[in-house]
Amino acid sequence: MFRAVISEAKEFKKVIDAASNLLDEICFEVNEEGIKARAMDPSHVALVSIDIPKEAFEEYEADVHDIGVDLEAFKKIMNRAKAKDKLILELDEEKNKLNVIFKGAATRKFALALYDVSSSNLQVPDIEYPNEILIKAGPFVDALKDADLVNDHVTLKVEDGKFIVYAKGDLNESETIFEEDSESIISMNIGENAKSTFNLEYLRDMTKAASSSDILKIYLGTDMPVKIEYDVAGANLTFLLAPRIES
């Protein structure tokens, strides 16, 4: 069996939005400890990892199940959540559906078809990074929006103790500089200068679920995948994005 109650449906919607920006379908692995999901996007450029411990739920009860769903369909259903709705997720093993129930002014029930998405057994690789930056999501997303004006890729740099978001187009350039004492920065653990370039659209998608005051943990090296972690509604979201490398 699987049944979970989430006090704010709108918050859980952010988790589904974050995944659906990058993936078509996902397998939620549920057990008595909580829910987890790991998947790579179809081009294997990005990896999404979601961990929701049972403590994040108002009520939680589960045996071991793999629950595969189409994320576009799940996202459309979650878009129907009202501001104060509670969300109940329950597995109907007989009908092979995930019931998605909103409890607010009325009780509204959707039955979401399950797909045979096998659990991937993916692990987030344990990489050592020279630099770890804790930054408010709002200013970082703003820096990405600035970069978007000049090109479709962006360079993240650590240079002389500063974290820099830089983009260069054929004609124009943009640069946002975060110094350690800037109010956007929570902390910077800098080991060495580093520089990697990434597709901007992926980075935008990965940070879409974060509210502007949420804290992003950004792990950065040179010509290495960037790792971005943050928490939404008690869920931990981790993203890895492969860089563009000068050939």
Binding site: L47, N121, N151, K168, A242, R244
Partner: peptide
């Protein structure tokens, strides 16, 4: 700028 590489180029993730 450069070439988009995949995560498979870095890790054996599976």
């Amino acid at each position: 700028f450069g070439k988009q590489v995949t995560l498979d180029d870095f890790f054996k993730i599976n």
